[in-house]
Design a protein around this nucleic acid. Structure first.
Lengths: 187, 187
DNA sequence: TTATCAAACTAACAAATGTTAGTGTGAGTA
DNA sequence: TACTCACACTAACATTTGTTAGTTTGATAA
């Protein structure tokens, strides 16, 4: 059974998505759960903790996923395809949390530097895979920054789009997206 | 000379970009301008007005730009290329304002429905151009939603990226981006 | 029964926030 | 000189907000 705390995090994610972290008050959140604001503090220490649990948790999912992909053997194209799958999987699992990660990370306070470190490491890994692909002749030698930026922003924004689609078969959707994203830059 | 009001809007755009509309207080904004919060009200009616002027102004730029493109003759590929140019031009002109448009539109209150109407009209035009391109055989018949989503999110996120690049020649950058975005879907 | 414990409540507070009222000031104009 | 007007100031306000203190409740275990 979902713990009360998990329920709070899930409900908060939904509200953060609609209005952003700062526009959601503890009274809003309590009201969405059918309780009073003060009661929230039986479960969480502060509003900050809610944001941190949501955002850092997902950032760690991405870090773990990227480590797994880097650890395996495979061509650059195969690795990029695995990255697309990772983004689709996490966006499906928790689109509201992804929204907070994308829009509210700057309000992280104490854990802001942790988040930025993880994001930079992730992007460095991503760039290194694309670079290897170009060197190996697997990826077209177009403007490097443009390739990376275009792929990353599309992947980062998946949470906006995925809830609208009817994903009967997530894995086939994921394959399809990988095709569209990679075919444009594949040799 | 830049009016005091324009200076306020410009400064506010920068702060909104860093922290988001709700996290920027009138005292923050005043302090960035070297004055007191109450003095702002000699120039603007409310905090809301600042957001509205910024966001609705840019939304109207896009609406006008799209009307111009739709009005001209040309292939779908040429129109898409013109749309890329439009996005690059507006992102260069005012990246901070673009950030507010992308991240703070939901706080528009009175003018929220105006904004949403404009955005929906813009996207409908975009989709119609892609659809015509597919019917005319100019664009690959891949998954329609995926093509549209991938292009639109990349264009919408340009403001995050453009300030980091050294754009000596905006028009050649624009051509390059259009190449990367369109080549992947071009026949 | 009695004790425990998670989880809700009421009441309150200090700080922050958007905004208003009323006032001063200094440069340009009549 | 006297007037105006843009633009800044101080002081204060009513709300809103995150959070704390202390209390009640209702189910489960001893």
């Amino acid at each position: 059974m979902e713990s009360r705390k998990a329920e709070i995090l899930r409900t908060a994610s939904g509200l953060f998505r609609e209005k952003g972290y700062n526009a959601v008050t503890m009274r809003d959140l309590a009201s969405a759960l059918g309780i009073k604001a003060a009661s929230l503090y039986n479960h969480i220490a502060s509003k900050q903790e809610i944001l941190q649990k949501i955002v850092i948790g997902i950032a760690e999912d991405f870090t773990r996923g990227m480590e797994g992909i880097q650890g395996e053997s495979g061509s650059s194209i195969e690795k990029l395809s695995a990255i697309v799958h990772l983004h689709v999987e996490l966006a499906i699992k928790n689109p509201d949390g992804m929204s907070a990660l994308n829009s509210d990370w700057m309000h992280l306070e104490d854990r802001l530097s942790d988040y930025i470190r993880m994001r930079e490491a992730y992007e460095a890994n991503f760039r290194s895979i694309v670079k290897q692909g170009i060197q190996a002749g697997e990826i077209k030698n177009m403007d490097f920054d443009t390739i990376v930026f275009s792929m990353l922003t599309t992947l980062r924004s998946l949470y906006l789009w995925i809830p609208k689609k009817n994903l009967h078969r997530p894995s086939s959707f994921s394959d399809e997206l990988a095709q569209v994203l990679i075919n444009g830059i594949n040799t």
